[in-house]
Structure formats: structure tokens, C-alpha cells
């Protein structure tokens, strides 16, 4: 507005001296503010973090030293100890994924607003799912080690309880995306709630269900590898032992085994997904 009226009164040359700027002043100000916050956060972190300068200077050398001691990996350690621990890890991941559905399916049904019309139940279910997700699987493992004592049982429950939030959230989203028409048709035919779910909803969410299960299993294979660090069974236990005894060639064997399993799990999941969908 201003630029339209002021030239006619004041400076007649003003339209010729147009200035190009990429952002309006307001935009520039907010961009500047964002940058300022970022830089301030970094400066604060650098200045107050408890890092010992000698350690920092020493770090590359120490890392190189560690890697040299790790090479070559001692493959002789693989069987039977590492192998058995690896199998146990896979059991923990798989059982944990299976068991999580016992809680995740009812919670997902409760959280989906088109399935469960009762508002307070929605909120309770959503909250449980969020709580399950915000506690990391290692922390869940700590809790379950306190309950069950050290061992694979704690690991299975840790994986299961961490997965409930993830699986439940994705499942309830899939449920909310289902088409209402088929359910309406089945209800009009006099179907009970269970039959409506079984024949009207389940066929629609089935592909999503298998996809979510596989996706979570893949993540759980990675996660279950570290549970042993807090005593919840699996290959993490072997890794912890090897590190505490400074057997670096053994550590590298374990690490390679974990890498291989994670890779194989990813390949299996990709294959199965492309066949299922």
C-alpha cells in the first residue's frame, strides 16, 4: 500500500530504485531468531559439557589402537558360545514381537476412534501407547531384570512392552483408515460386533498388520542384541563379558556376528514384505 501511494507525492524516482530481497523483514527476523537459538544451544552445550580436553586430544589415537587390537577377529570363539547367544537373541526378538500383540491389539482397538466410540477409553489407550513408547527397551529391560531376575525372560518382556506402543500406534492408525462401508453392510445384515471386526475390518487391515509385525521384528532383532548389557539375556551378555576382559579379538567376532544377523533379518523382512503386499 505504502509503496503505491508515497512515490506520487514524494520521490518520483522511487519506482526505479527497486530493491530485491529474498525475504521480508519479518521472515528475516524469524529466520535470524531460529539461527540464534540453534547457535546459542550449541555454544551452551560446548561450554558447559563435561569433556576432558586430554581425552578429546587422545581420542583418535585411542580409537585406532582399539581397532588394531580388534583385528583380526578370532573366529574360533564363534562356536558354541557366540552362536548360542545369537540364537537366544533371535528367540528374544521373535517371542517379544509375538507377545507384544497380546497387549497391542486390544489397545489399538481401544485407541481407534472409529472402532471404540467411548472417548475416555480412547484417551487411556493412547496414553498407554505413548508411555510404552517413551520408555526405551533398555530401561524396560532394567525394570524386568528387577522383576524376573537376570535372564532371557526379562529380555522377552522388555522387547514386548517396548513394542506395544509402536505396534499399537501404527495398528490404530491403520484401523482408523479402514473404509466404513463394508462394516455398515455387515451391521445391516445383523452381524455381531465380533463378526463385524472379523469379516469387515480384519481383511482391510491384514496387509498393514503383517507389514507392521515384520517391521517391528526387524527393529527388535537390533534392539535385543544390546539387552544383555543390563543382564537381560542374549548376545549382549557375551559382548559385555568380552569387553570387560579386554578380549578385543573376541569383541570383533561378536560385533561381526551381530552385523550379519541384522543384515540377514533386513533381507528376510524385505523379501517377505514384497511377497505379502
Amino acid at each position: 500500500m505504502n509503496s503505491m501511494t508515497s512515490p506520487s507525492f514524494g520521490d518520483p524516482m522511487a519506482p526505479l530504485r527497486r530493491e530485491w530481497t529474498r525475504h521480508t523483514p519479518g521472515q528475516r527476523l524469524s529466520r535470524f531468531a531460529v539461527w540464534l537459538v540453534c547457535v546459542a544451544a550449541i555454544v551452551w552445550a560446548v561450554r558447559s559439557i563435561d569433556i576432558i580436553p586430554e581425552f578429546l586430544a587422545d581420542a583418535p589415537e585411542q580409537m585406532a589402537d582399539l581397532l588394531i587390537r580388534m583385528w583380526p577377529p578370532n573366529v574360533a570363539h564363534y562356536y558354541p558360545e557366540v552362536h548360542n547367544a545369537l540364537i537366544e537373541t533371535l528367540h528374544i526378538a521373535t517371542l517379544g514381537t509375538l507377545f507384544c500383540f497380546i497387549l497391542a491389539v486390544p489397545l489399538a482397538l481401544m485407541a481407534a476412534r472409529n472402532i471404540c466410540p467411548i472417548k475416555p477409553l480412547n484417551v487411556v489407550a493412547q496414553f498407554s501407547l505413548v508411555a510404552s513408547r517413551s520408555v526405551n527397551s533398555l530401561v524396560w529391560a532394567l525394570l524386568f531384570v528387577a522383576i524376573f531376575g537376570p535372564g532371557a525372560a526379562a529380555g522377552v518382556f522388555a522387547i514386548a512392552f517396548r513394542s506395544v506402543g509402536f505396534v499399537g500406534k501404527l495398528l490404530s492408525e491403520a484401523l482408523e483408515e479402514t473404509n466404513h462401508g463394508p462394516r455398515e453392510a455387515l451391521r445391516a445384515a445383523g452381524a455381531s460386533w465380533g463378526a463385524e471386526m472379523l469379516k469387515g475390518v480384519w481383511p482391510q487391515v491384514q496387509p498393514a498388520f503383517w507389514g507392521i509385525a515384520l517391521f517391528r521384528w526387524d527393529i527388535n532383532v537390533r534392539e535385543s542384541a544390546v539387552l544383555g548389557l543390563v543382564g537381560a539375556g542374549g548376545i549382549g551378555l557375551v559382548l559385555d563379558d568380552a569387553i570387560n576382559f579386554f578380549q578385543w579379538d573376541r569383541v570383533s567376532t561378536v560385533l561381526l556376528a551381530i552385523l550379519a544377523v541384522v543384515l540377514v533379518a533386513e533381507i528376510i523382512v524385505t523379501r517377505l514384505r514384497s511377497r505379502l503386499l
Binding site: 563435561d50 576432558i52 587422545d58 581420542a59 580409537m63 582399539l66 544390546v226 569387553i243 551381530i258
Partner: peptide, 17 residues
């Protein structure tokens, strides 16, 4: 590599903290 495993390696190489 899981970040916790990486963290262990770094702890062993460059110390706690």
C-alpha cells in the same frame, strides 16, 4: 551398529563421560 554398542566401544577407547 546399535548406538549403545558404539557407546561401549567409545567408552573403552576414550574413557567414561
Amino acid at each position: 551398529l546399535h548406538y549403545v554398542i558404539v557407546a561401549i566401544l567409545f567408552v573403552k577407547a576414550i574413557g567414561f563421560g
